[in-house]
Structures are given as structure tokens and as C-alpha cells.
Design a protein around this nucleic acid. Structure first.
Lengths: 109, 109
DNA sequence: GAGGTTGTTGGATGATTGTCAAACGGTACG
DNA sequence: CGTACCGTTTGACAATCATCCAACAACCTC
């Protein structure tokens, strides 16, 4: 049994989260799907099937996750082969009060 | 003196405003500047200077305004040579409650 | 260690986008 | 009427982007 690593993937500091980049990260139907999945608590692994984007290649999903993380939308912890992703709710709410909530309420079914 | 026309430029119906398109329309620094100008009540003419994007060609500004209008963000009334633009506050708030408010509060200076 | 799993990276490609410039079309007003 | 004005449209161009595929790296299990 190897030492369980617990490494956080690089992400911008709270104060460096830019509105334009957040909006750019959200301006894509696939990433809105990911946002919805993350908001629903799906935080374990990145398989396209479980994230509701089964039609996409896994590298494409990885690409979208990177964009969201680098925009400041998500945090990712790498543990072994898995990625544990979660929304940066507190950080986003501190920086853009109410934005995430109204977004999540406005997401299409 | 010619008859003063009062023609509304084409825009989506309230129920047809899509979140993705709204976000795409907002995911650009220039259009965020326009949003800010419109929110501040600058509704008369489309000159790049008065809208705070003096570095851009007038056709570029016209292009951005069209994108915002077709996304459902703005309403435009054409009167003579002028364009009277305003935010669709009520429509946006009906469709995405709280979104516009939190956005406007989050706009950079 | 071998082989299967999970996610990332690089290249390639087609589509979209932001911008400008020039031409165009109404409009206002001498 | 002619000219200046204001915004739109079109074409062109470079840049960015979303996607796939193949190769790779790290990990887990047998």
C-alpha cells in the first residue's frame, strides 16, 4: 500500500478570480453540465458518463475541467488515479455575492 | 420634417432567452464594458467614445451590441440615425432571478 | 513486475470569434 | 438636391476554441 497522496491541483487565489474568466468558463453548454453535476455533489472521478457528458472524449472532459479550475470555479484534489472536484462556493460568493446561487437556480434541466 | 420612426430591432422573446447565450454574450471584456455603460443609463447613441471603448472601430461596437441584443440582454429602439439601448432588467430578472443584480455588483471598476 | 485503469498532454483539425476596413443605406440638414 | 452623419453589413484575417486521437504517466491490483 503506497502513501496516499493528497495534492491540490493549481488554482487561482481568491482575490485573483476574474469575472471575465469565470463567465468565459461558464459560456459553454458542456461546462454548464459539469457545473450542474458538481453542484449536485458528484465529486468522484471524471468519467464522461457519470458527469452527464457521455458523448465526449475523456480528454475533452479533462480539458473542460482544467478551464473551470483555472477560472477559479472549482477545486481539485488529486488522490491516486482519481480527481475529487468541488465548487469553490465560499470563494465565489465572497468575490461575486449571489452570482453562483442565481446561476445554479437558472440552470436548465 | 419626416415622420419620426420608432422601430424596435429584433430580439428574442422573454421565454426564449437562453442562459448559455447570455453567458456567451457576457464572456467578453468589451461587452462587460457596454453592460456597465448601459446599467449606468447611457442609452443614447453608440459612439465608441461615449461607451468607454474608444479604442474600437464603430463596426466592432455595432457587432457587440448586436450580440447582446440577440442574446436577450438589451433592447434597442431605432429612431432616425440613433439607437436607444437599454438593459432588459425585468425580463432578465424574470428568467434568471438575481443574476443581473449580482453581475452588476461584481463588475470591475 | 505485468497489465489494466484513470487522467493528462500534445498535435491536428474544423469551427467560432474579435477586429478592422471599406462599402452601403438611411437620416438630418444645409 | 447634395453632403455630412450614424449605424449596419460584408469580407478578410489572425486568434482562440472545442473536439478527437494517440501517446504518455501515474496508479492500483493481481
Amino acid at each position: 500500500m503506497s502513501e496516499a497522496e493528497n495534492e491540490w491541483l493549481p488554482q487561482p487565489d481568491v482575490d485573483d478570480i476574474e469575472l471575465v474568466k469565470v463567465l468565459q468558463a461558464l459560456a459553454d453548454p458542456v461546462r454548464l453540465s459539469l457545473l450542474k453535476a458538481y453542484a449536485a455533489g458528484k465529486r468522484f472521478n471524471c468519467s464522461p458518463e457519470e458527469l452527464g457528458v457521455a458523448h465526449l472524449h475523456k480528454s475533452t472532459v479533462s480539458h473542460h475541467m482544467k478551464i473551470m479550475r483555472e477560472a477559479g470555479l472549482t477545486s481539485t484534489r488529486a488522490v491516486g488515479r482519481n480527481r475529487y472536484v468541488q465548487l469553490r462556493r465560499d470563494d465565489l460568493d465572497a468575490r461575486f455575492p449571489g452570482l453562483l446561487d442565481s446561476l445554479l437556480k437558472s440552470l436548465p434541466d
